[in-house]
């Protein structure tokens, strides 16, 4: 089985506002799916439905063959296999970098302290923050915070990663260091769904490009073909604005 994520006719509403209007998406192992679309089109909501942070109204979310909303499924256990990184970092401000990263292995996976710490050190080295183990989030730059957040997600050894506009809150000169880490991760074979406006990243790292608008997937394809030659008028209009 290589299908990591399957969304089948997923509908989602906030009160009377229908935000996802039947989303179908299958992501297979090692794919790097880049999601673009105008603000409010439901990109974040789709990511949050993939790991069950948002309940859905209708449809199915299947993670590695398991129905996320199945009667015998524990969503907490499934979430351990799905790393997620947010636009606003969401590091735990009361813990230093090391403890941010080791918290979940320690408390969720119940690993022994020494092992959790070992994992955290390795992950922080991986994202180039060996020097910042004991820095608190407010002592780190945005780019460094976001790399800690990535390390924190990776410490759970997830099978797939979700990125929600992780460079949008960063100063331009800090974007590259975060994209670099993500590119390395993609090259190591991680399955990824990346919501971003970085078209360079989409072209170079993405294996598939998805354009969302109004709560549905309007168009998808190979980024290297789709970016220069979008088929749908809505995609054309959006791309002409961001490029």
């Amino acid at each position: 089985m290589t299908s990591m994520i399957e969304l089948i006719d997923v509908h989602k509403s906030f009160d009377s506002l229908e935000v996802l209007k039947g989303v179908n998406l299958t992501v297979v192992k090692k794919e790097v799916v880049v999601v673009i679309g105008p603000s409010g089109s439901g990109k974040s909501t789709m990511l949050r439905c993939i790991n069950g942070l948002e309940p859905i109204l209708k449809g199915k979310v299947i993670i590695e063959g398991e129905d996320l909303h199945g009667p015998h499924t524990d969503p907490n256990r499934i979430r351990q296999r799905i790393g997620m990184v947010f636009q606003s970092f969401n590091l735990f401000p009361h813990k230093d970098a090391l403890h941010n990263v080791m918290m979940a292995p320690l408390k969720v996976q119940k690993k022994p302290k020494a092992e959790a710490e070992q994992i955290a050190r390795e992950q922080l080295c991986q994202v180039g923050l060996a020097e910042k183990m004991h820095a608190y989030p407010d002592e780190l730059s945005g780019g460094q915070q976001q790399r800690v957040a990535i390390a924190r997600a990776l410490a759970m050894k997830p099978d797939m990663m979700l990125f929600d506009e992780v460079t949008s809150a960063l100063d331009p000169e800090l974007v590259a260091e975060v994209l670099g880490v993500m590119q390395g991760l993609a090259e190591s074979g991680m399955t990824m769904v990346v919501v971003t406006h970085e078209m360079g990243f989409a072209r170079e790292v993405g294996t598939r490009l998805i354009f969302m608008d109004g709560g549905v997937i309007v168009e998808e394809g190979d980024p290297r073909e789709m970016i220069p030659n979008p088929k749908e008028p809505r995609t054309q209009k959006f791309l002409s604005m961001v490029l």
């Binding site: 790991n51 942070l53 907490n76 256990r77 979430r79 997620m84 735990f92 979940a104 408390k107 997600a153």
Partner: peptide, 18 residues
């Protein structure tokens, strides 16, 4: 405490209680 904190915790697989 910002909603993002709960989200980050839950996305790591923590239960509501954790």
């Amino acid at each position: 405490i910002a909603k993002g904190q709960t989200e980050a915790a839950r996305s790591l697989g923590m239960t509501h209680g954790q």
